[in-house]
Design a protein around this nucleic acid. Sequence first.
DNA 1: ATTATTTGACCGGC
DNA 2: GCCGGTCAAATAAT
Length: 264
Amino acid sequence: MASPPMKTEQSFEFGELSAQDAMGSASESSYSPPGAVFGVSPPESSPRGRNNRRRDRPSWVKLTYTPYFDGHLWRKYGQKKIKDAEYPRLYFRCSYRGDRQCMASKLLQQKNGDDPPLYEVTYTYEHTCGAPPIPSPDIVAEPPAASTEGLVLRFDSPGGHGGDAQMMQQQGQYQQSSSRSPFMMLSFGSSCQAHDQQPAFHSDLEPGLSSSLPNEGLPAPPPANGDGGMFPTWDSFTYDFDSHVHFGDHSRLPYNSNYGCDDF
DNA sequence: ATTATTTGACCGGC
DNA sequence: GCCGGTCAAATAAT
């Protein structure tokens, strides 16, 4: 009311390297282990100060073709064109930030304009909202074939409708060239299955617990197929997996409380 | 009606 | 001073 727009209440940063630094060194698949950088203090502890400089925020970088599908729910809160980048940078924040004070955030930057554009995702802070962790070196993707418990591959095309499309809306659709991209969803859940219209992410029936096996939705990047298709290629998968895939998932949405089977 | 998204402006940090 | 990052308000979509 009487107070002017005070946007200075969220400068909690502890950390390690800045996004720029991370990106600068992340020419290839480089990232910084989250666990190694975590010694942070509660956000409310440092309103904004010298203890939490932007450069001190823990962050790790991950290269992927499917930046929108890391198993977490993100809300886009900004987009900016970087002087040194050909593509704008997208800023995402955990959807539970206001609900659970989850400070997890991520920056999305397209690395090139390839058909299957490669994105560099800089994650900052871990998820404290009870959702599974983010891509970390400790968590590596296992051979899908090994765990066929709930492997769901979903290829959705724009014209074929797709419940996943919903996710696209939420996660962002900054596809300039290929406005739409088919999707592929990987779900490693035993009893949880993807609904007809809901993303297949699922598995953290017990948010807050530690041993949750997160699943990562690996969507498929646009084309790159011989037939100029718009379907993903396993190559991208391999890349992602090779890049340290992590499985993540959030169990609830603002409008969709039941995400699969968490409402068990 | 609710929520997410979008764009612009402001501020902080370097 | 410049750049990057985040917030805020408005708009659109569902």
